[in-house]
């Protein structure tokens, strides 16, 4: 039983990392008022380009992941231009960006022969003897570098959001762009920067899946994790720390499934795979019931293209 718990908890962080990074990336963009449904696609871009950098250019895994971040940030310019400059419907723009990224990542993988090639990827941080401590060792000292970096990244994001001028501007643009504009904050520039920064984190989430978790690139390998991250943002009410909590929760749910099978629990194989999706749905239902009468935490201008008010 203890063994079961240890392996379960030890595999949870690596499953939680993409959710946490993806959700925080989305939070950055949505706190600036841009409804962002692109995560599923941008994660794929991050995943394929990081894997490609490692496979074709023998980049060290961390550098490969940086490439993934940059690639996702670059592709997100397309989405940002659509919704910020051209004021396109943010739902449609998000969906078509996902569609575009699915095609692009599949095309790149096929053209350059990255698809289905295993590589060594990012391993755990070598803590030496610490990792062999019973119970604590595999859980606390058995993770890779990015897993340890998640909390510092979240800390930086929440400090920037809450305690800097840049964060103040970003939140103002998301809550009331008219007021921010009147105060001299450039709404389009702020939103562009928020989307790009957020997309870099989403790209890192995708790169983590290919380079650190699975250590291979396969078409559509994110398998809905981007959508779960979108749901997580609502669950977290646009707060990075609550998003971390949700990510760990979802990671734990996902981690337990193979452990149960390994422990000899007989479950219908394919129905078990529905667990993360049904769990997400359950959480969404719970949030909307529990907070039915609570004031909304949604950024005031979420999903609303900003146009300086000139009379028609």
């Amino acid at each position: 039983m203890l063994q079961f718990l240890v392996t379960w908890l030890a595999t949870t962080p690596s499953l939680a990392v993409p959710y946490a990074l993806g959700a925080v990336g989305l939070i950055l963009s949505e706190r600036a008022g841009v409804l962002n449904l692109t995560a599923e696609g941008l994660m794929l871009i991050g995943a394929v380009s990081a894997a490609g950098a490692v496979l074709s250019f023998h980049a060290p895994p961390l550098l490969g992941m940086a490439v993934g971040m940059a690639a996702a940030a670059f592709v997100s310019l397309l989405f940002a231009a659509l919704v910020i400059t051209f004021r396109a419907n943010q739902v449609i723009a998000g969906l078509v960006t996902v569609f575009f990224c699915q095609g692009l990542s599949s095309l790149l993988g096929a053209q350059f022969g990255w698809t289905s090639k295993a590589f060594s990827g990012l391993g755990p941080v070598p803590f030496g003897p610490l990792a062999t401590i019973p119970v604590l060792g595999p859980i606390v000292f058995g993770q890779d570098l990015v897993a340890y970096l998640v909390v510092p990244i979240l800390f930086v994001v929440s400090v920037v959001l809450g305690r800097t001028r840049a964060g103040l501007n970003l939140r103002a643009v998301g809550e009331n762009p008219e007021a921010a504009d009147a105060a001299g904050v450039s709404v389009p520039i702020t939103r562009f920067l928020a989307v790009i920064a957020g997309s870099a984190l989403i790209g890192l989430a995708g790169a983590y899946i290919s380079v650190a978790s699975v250590k291979i690139w396969i078409d559509d390998m994110t398998a809905g994790r981007g959508w779960i991250a979108v749901a997580l943002v609502i669950f977290a009410r646009w707060n990075p720390w609550r998003a971390l909590f949700g990510a760990v929760l979802f990671g734990a749910i996902q981690a337990i499934i193979p452990k149960l099978a390994a422990a000899g629990v007989m479950l219908p194989q394919y129905l078990v795979l529905t667990t993360p999706y049904l769990a997400t749905l359950a959480v969404m239902i719970w949030v909307s019931i529990a907070r039915r009468h609570a004031p909304g935490d949604e950024p005031g201008a979420l999903g609303r293209p900003y146009v300086r008010e000139e009379r028609v």
């Binding site: 103002a172 809550e175 009331n176 008219e178 007021a179 921010a180």
Partner: peptide, 30 residues
């Protein structure tokens, strides 16, 4: 508007340009 403020012009609009979930301090700082 920021240039106008730098020239010493301030305007109180009919629909206030305040960020409602922000504190007074945050609004002034903004």
């Amino acid at each position: 508007p920021r240039d106008a403020a730098a020239h010493g012009i301030g305007m109180v609009h009919q629909h206030f340009k305040l960020v409602r979930p922000f504190s007074i301090l945050e609004n002034v700082l903004l």
